[in-house]
Design a protein around this nucleic acid. Structure first.
Lengths: 159, 159
DNA sequence: GCTTGACTTCAAGTCGACTTGAAGTTGCAA
DNA sequence: TTGCAACTTCAAGTCGACTTGAAGTCAAGC
């Protein structure tokens, strides 16, 4: 018995990747992964698919849609493990995306802890407290969350 | 003409909060926000609702469901601006959540840049490269993403 | 060769988070 | 007092990401 078979059935891939078989078939429909078939028509996945599936799940955690994931995965080879050049082609997209998301979360976090830590409920300095309200003067939406700096203490906000 | 009316119609709140009126009605249905009614039955929102809506949108960015948001918002007063004690009651939930999510993203980011920067495609050190594959020995799922440390160079992974 | 679990396709269902549409009512400015 | 945008409810529709079910086929251990 070989320790690692070279190709995986859908069930095996599902177990190893931690997703349902139905999800794998769905991903295949979207072109995110691909499989060869046995004579009888059953799927057999190259081990490289494990990485692609891990990629998909990771991307979803980041908040990317399967569509967006597809755009990235389309630039990686389906049949073999990605090499350094492959990575260099896709990584900037990812990193920028991930960085943006991290920045977003850190702004949120700062708003939250700031509210507790610094007696901020003075109506002027707290970003969350003033959220869409004073920000409305600069257009709709929770601008503070999108990178706007909060109003300075001395600045009139109309309140 | 007063600079700020004390109560907002659904359209005004929608504009200021940057969401659709239909979304506001939906949030009300879920108990995330509340409105008083005019004699004729139209909604009039207290200004505090702006903050609640901003809160909801922020939470969604973090990846929380409206259900989860509801659990947090339930601990804040509907009628008035939250004070320091209110914040202290809800903030830890948020911060933990946000922190976890940031950590997740940073792991992902590190995997990505590590893949480019350090000639990691040696099959042993790169976390993403080894993703679900070797991790399968420790249970299903992309464990590296969930906080598992990647296999050490000297460690046998069966490959 | 037979059984049994894992597989196949395809259509329909589900869930969260809204959006859209129909049909009617309200509020306010001219 | 009238005109009209903005509002009201309720039901149904949409979208992404799957899941479920039916009805049938494959692969491998006894």
């Amino acid at each position: 018995m070989p320790v690692l078979e070279s190709r995986l059935s859908v069930g095996e891939l599902a177990r190893r990747a931690g997703v349902a078989t139905s999800a794998l078939r769905y991903y295949e429909q979207l072109g995110l992964i691909a499989a060869e078939r046995t004579a009888g028509g059953q799927r057999r996945y190259a081990r490289a698919m494990l990485r692609r599936v891990a990629f998909v799940r990771a991307a979803q955690q980041v908040g990317l849609s399967l569509d967006e994931v597809g755009a990235v995965l389309a630039r990686l080879p389906m049949d073999r493990a990605p090499n350094k050049a492959d990575w260099q082609a896709v990584s900037p997209l990812w990193v920028a995306r991930v960085d943006a998301r991290i920045a977003e979360l850190e702004r949120l976090r700062e708003s939250l802890t700031g509210c507790i830590g610094c007696g901020c409920l003075s109506l002027r300095t707290c970003r969350l407290y003033n959220a869409g309200d004073t920000a409305a003067t600069r257009g709709p939406g929770a601008r503070w969350l999108l990178g706007d700096t909060p109003p300075k203490p001395g600045e009139s906000t109309g309140m």
